[in-house]
């Protein structure tokens, strides 16, 4: 079936099978491999993108459900030369190691700050409940989010 949506500002019309996850369209069809798949039960959050500006797990959304929608992925929030404040903060605070959970973590963190729920350490920790990181112990991720919240 035909689906139209905008990804990182570019409009796409794609023919997708109904049983296609949004994450598979992003990665395989559009080549946006910054969005990762870390689990198959919709728990790890590595596939988090923004749909209509809000963080969602793209492994728990069908491509056909987002017909007419607007999606932003990690590739769409900043560039190497013009980083988003959250990207900048992750680098400055050493909030990543292997980098695999990082795009999803950053997308969740941006939504968290934009919702106004990143006021203190406790709320940041609670707000990142939907993203699993195995490398950092979260310590520096929490620092980075609090840091970015000041700048966003």
């Amino acid at each position: 079936m035909n689906v139209e949506f905008t990804v990182n500002g570019t409009a796409h019309t794609l023919d997708v099978e109904p049983n296609t996850l949004l994450v598979d369209v992003l990665r395989s069809t559009l080549g946006l491999t910054g969005t990762h798949v870390g689990c198959d039960t919709s728990q790890c959050g590595a596939c988090t993108v923004h749909l209509e500006g809000r963080a969602v797990k793209s492994c728990a959304v069908l491509a056909c459900q987002v017909d007419g929608g607007t999606i932003t992925t990690i590739e769409g929030i900043g560039t190497v030369d013009d980083l988003h404040p959250m990207q900048e903060a992750f680098r400055e605070c050493h909030a990543l190691q292997c980098g695999f959970c990082t795009p999803g973590m950053i997308m969740s963190a941006i939504d968290l700050v934009e919702r106004g729920e990143a006021g203190d350490e406790g709320s940041v920790r609670a707000g990142l409940e939907g993203n699993i990181c195995r490398c950092t112990g979260y310590h520096n991720i929490v620092r980075a989010v609090l840091h970015a919240a000041q700048r966003m």
């Binding site: 809000r54 797990k57 939907g130």
Partner: peptide, 9 residues
Amino acid sequence: IGDAQVRNR
């Protein structure tokens, strides 16, 4: 309920 991403959907 769930986590932030789940609550958004």
